[in-house]
Amino acid sequence: MNELFEIVEEPIEVEAVIKKVERREAGAITTFIGTVREWTRGRRTVYLKYQAYVPMAVKMLAKIGEEINEKWPNTEVAISHRIGHLDISDIAVVIAVSSPHRKAAYEANEYAIERIKQIVPIWKKEHWEDGETWIGDQLEKVPYPNGKPDVKDEKHD
């Protein structure tokens, strides 16, 4: 089986991510597909570039999977995030969660995308018609007052 958590440079196949979480005891699979949107607050995106600190990003995705298994027992999670050049409508991220019951599958999936936007070292550079910008802090929180985000159970070793 492929890795459950991966950063890839090639297009993501949604079905392949779903396959990773299929199980006989699962009655519900939710997926989130994040695609490149053309318009953001009235401004037109031409294309995007995603950059990642790859080994750490993979580790943080796996950490999100662990957090989910703790909060919603008996779920299975797979996340693929693409980096590099992406055009409008290209898939940037796919999150698949399977669970015996649907409520957990929805909740855990939404939790995953929120956490990706908090702790996974991936950066998006928007290329507009009239310029380019690195996008930071999409959740519009204040810059981490503690110098680090809310990351649980973690040690520096």
Binding site: G34, V93, K117, P121, W123, G136, D137
Partner: peptide
């Protein structure tokens, strides 16, 4: 040591 600007994946 990696310096991690506010992230914007997803």
């Amino acid at each position: 040591v990696a310096f991690i600007p506010p992230v914007s994946g997803g």
